Deep mutational scan, measured.
Amino acid sequence: CHSECLGNCSQPDDPTKCVACRNFYLDGRCVETCPPPYYHFQDWRCVNFSFCQDLHHKCKNSRRQGCHQYVIHNNKCIPECPSGYTMNSSNLLCTPCLGPCPKVCHLLEGEKTIDSVTSAQELRGCTVINGSLIINIRGGNNLAAELEANLGLIEEISGYLKIRRSYALVSLSFFRKLRLIRGETLEIGNYSFYALDNQNLRQLWDWSKHNLTITQGKLFFHYNPKLCLSEIHKMEEVSGTKGRQERNDIALKTNGDQASCENELLKFSYIRTSFDKILLRWEPYWPPDFRDLLGFMLFYKEAPYQNVTEFDGQDACGSNSWTVVDIDPPLRSNDPKSQNHPGWLMRGLKPWTQYAIFVKTLVTFSDERRTYGAKSDIIYVQTDATNPSVPLDPISVSNSSSQIILKWKPPSDPNGNITHYLVFWERQAEDSELFELDYCLKGLKLPSRTWSPPFESEDSQKHNQSEYEDSAGECCSCPKTDSQILKELEESSFRKTFEDYLHNVVFVPRKT
């Protein structure tokens, strides 16, 4: 048989008469490798580009789960590009990614509803959504962080984005990388972005840091009482949809009607710091009717980097990364020049730590249904340095008659930039024990000054392991946590139920 035959053949030295091919099969003959313009397919066939392209389009058009959109890589027609490569849609070739590779997620039936953290986790790592997304989240724990972890990498949506009755959302900033909504599939009414009845939605994105392009379709905003109209108009300008909307697409009466839409800028007039305090004062603000001013709200939190936005980490279910302080308005003076500047002394802060701070007014709604208010920009203030805590785990070892090696770990709280350490030492008198000992005694162990690591005695271990207080009263049991108490109650309830079950099964009433 021919060298490319495997198993047997019907005619000697003829690659077209093989029972099976050793390498690849091409047009009725066995070959060692697939010549151009053919590609290896499933490690035994040679196919042309049209064959591989037909497989790709067949799966793409069917949208069946589990099928493969075949691509070409290293002269092979394979189910998908290997790690580190992405497909070129024009020629199906796998090309190296520039940075992290995109991950295209194809949605069944063309859309997916995100109504819980669990459903959001199914899209973790996706960068391109081939379909439409509907966000409908009523509640949950730590929602802002969970949504950002699972949806934060999405850069492109081919269909539309719909935010509907998501009472738990305060902001859409968890879509931190969303840059493009194509609108290839539109919501009824030709809408590519749809926001309806979101009672706590206050911000779409921080438009000073976020760009969003909507290729096709219109915007729809109705019944978002805490979303200011200025935020919607800003989205029109940034996304390129200005002029597409009709009169009733953006409701003037049901958007922002319960919001404090600040239209003035508060400026800080005085800032002073110490290692654990920050004193702030800002310019006074009074609405047209000074009785509408209820006070100020001061927001602050630790910020290692200057990239904080107002609604980071917030949701309507209680999660809030900001510390909020309510401040009463100052006494009002008739003389504008003698107006008191409101302020606040922030206490209990960490030394040498940068804080993000902003302040906003708290006002009631005027009778004319106009909203007044003022808010400052987010500023960054760093507390002063102070003395560091003591170095940890000092170790001293003498390696000769004239040297001592000293080692330690950095302090747990540096409280500033540590530039150097101060080492103090003092000579001590020799131990009298060394002169009084009889060095001729056998088995004498000389006193040693070398360091030995501390260890816990058996008594201390027994005390720590004991669940009861000892007789001397030195140790006591740790208080039980809520989960331990709940577990004990469940076990007790189970024992009672099981005992009742045994009584009912074992003891049967005697027939009379």
Rank of each mutant, 00 (worst) to 15 (best):
E155N: 11
L345K: 05
F268W: 08
S376K: 02
A303Y: 15
E156Q: 07
Y300F: 04
H233K: 04
V390I: 15
K209R: 12
E236L: 06
E148L: 07
A120T: 12
T353P: 00
G318A: 02
F220V: 08
N190C: 13
L345T: 07
N141L: 10
I357Q: 00
A303F: 15
L280G: 00
K242P: 07
P342A: 11
W408P: 01
R247V: 07
D197M: 06
S192T: 01
Y191N: 04
G110L: 11
F174S: 08
T309A: 07
G217K: 04
N211T: 10
C126R: 00
T113W: 08
K350R: 14
K112P: 01
V308N: 05
R247P: 07
F290T: 05
E283S: 09
F290L: 03
V363P: 09
Y223W: 09
P342S: 03
E368D: 11
I129N: 00
I163Y: 01
T113V: 11
I378N: 01
N255F: 11
A316S: 11
I114R: 00
N399P: 13
W282Y: 01
N320Y: 12
A356R: 02
L204G: 05
F358R: 12
M297P: 00
P329L: 04
I188G: 11
I129S: 01
C228A: 06
L212D: 01
F193T: 02
G139Q: 15
T213K: 04
N263A: 12
Y380I: 02
W322S: 02
A144C: 08
E262F: 10
L201W: 06
I214E: 00
C228G: 03
D115Y: 02
V238Y: 09
L153H: 06
H233C: 14
P391V: 06
T273E: 04
W322G: 03
G139Y: 05
I405N: 10
A385E: 07
P329I: 07
R370A: 13
T383H: 00
E109P: 13
W286A: 02
G159R: 04
L212T: 12
G243S: 08
G256T: 01
G343I: 03
V324T: 06
W408M: 01
F221Y: 13
L298S: 01
V390N: 08
W282V: 04
L123Y: 13
S132T: 12
L345C: 05
S192K: 01
N150T: 06
I154C: 05
T241F: 10
K267V: 14
V170P: 07
K242F: 06
A168G: 03
G139A: 08
E310S: 08
D115G: 00
D315E: 03
L349A: 08
K375Y: 10
T213V: 13
E310H: 13
V363S: 07
F290Y: 10
T241W: 12
A168I: 04
R124I: 15
W352M: 10
E111V: 13
L293Q: 07
D328G: 04
S173F: 05
F193W: 04
E109I: 11
H341I: 11
R179C: 14
S274W: 03
W322D: 02
F296D: 03
V117A: 15
T118A: 02
D289A: 04
P288D: 03
I214P: 00
L161P: 01
A120D: 02
K375V: 08
V390G: 03
K277G: 15
Q354A: 09
W286M: 07
R247W: 11
R291T: 14
D335G: 05
K267Q: 12
I250K: 03
I163C: 09
F290P: 12
D312C: 03
K162S: 10
R369H: 06
I129C: 07
L204C: 09
M235L: 15
A145E: 14
A149H: 08
W352A: 10
I395H: 13
F221S: 06
R176S: 13
A120Q: 03
G125M: 12
K407L: 05
S333M: 05
R369D: 03
D292Y: 07
L266Y: 01
S402A: 15
E148P: 09
D377S: 10
F358I: 09
S398C: 15
L212Y: 02
L266S: 01
L133P: 00
S319A: 07
G189T: 07
P287H: 11
I181A: 01
F299H: 14
D384H: 14
A251I: 07
K162F: 15
Q354G: 14
D206E: 13
S274P: 00
T273A: 09
I395S: 08
R165M: 07
I278P: 00
F220T: 14
V363N: 09
Q199V: 13
S402M: 08
S398V: 03
N248C: 13
L133E: 00
K103D: 05
I154H: 00
D197N: 15
D315M: 07
S158A: 13
R138K: 12
F358Q: 07
N340A: 07
L153K: 13
D393F: 14
N130Y: 03
L107A: 08
P288K: 07
E264K: 06
Q245R: 09
R281C: 02
N255Q: 10
T309M: 02
S396Y: 01
T185N: 13
I405G: 12
F193K: 00
C317I: 15
K234N: 09
Y305L: 13
T353G: 01
L108M: 14
S400L: 06
E246H: 11
K267P: 09
K234L: 03
P351I: 04
E111S: 06
E184Q: 08
G140K: 05
E262T: 10
I129W: 04
A356E: 01
V104M: 06
V397P: 13
N130K: 04
F311A: 15
G183V: 01
R347C: 10
M346H: 02
K234C: 10
C126E: 00
K360M: 04
F311V: 05
S132K: 02
W207D: 08
I157G: 00
D115Q: 05
V104G: 05
G313L: 07
K103Q: 14
N387L: 05
D393M: 13
V325R: 12
S338T: 10
E231M: 08
F358D: 01
I378V: 02
S389Y: 03
R138L: 07
G131W: 00
N190A: 14
A356T: 04
N211K: 14
M346T: 04
L227Q: 02
F299G: 06
L349W: 00
E187V: 10
H106A: 03
K253N: 12
M235K: 00
K360S: 09
I278Q: 00
D315K: 15
L279T: 01
G159D: 01
T383A: 01
V397M: 12
R165V: 06
V128H: 13
N198S: 03
T361P: 01
H106V: 09
P388H: 01
W322H: 05
Q339G: 14
F358C: 01
A259E: 05
Q216E: 01
E156D: 06
N340R: 02
V238E: 10
L298C: 03
G313F: 03
H210N: 03
P304F: 05
S260D: 15
G343N: 14
A259W: 08
K409S: 13
N263I: 05
S396L: 14
P391Y: 02
H222Y: 02
V324S: 06
I214V: 14
P394E: 04
D335F: 10
D328A: 11
A149F: 15
E187C: 13
M346G: 06
D393I: 02
D289F: 04
S230P: 15
L362A: 10
L108P: 14
Q403T: 08
Y167A: 15
L108G: 12
Q382T: 11
K337T: 14
L169F: 14
L294D: 05
W205H: 09
D335L: 05
R291K: 07
Y355E: 00
S192L: 01
P330T: 04
R179D: 03
L229S: 09
D292N: 12
K301R: 12
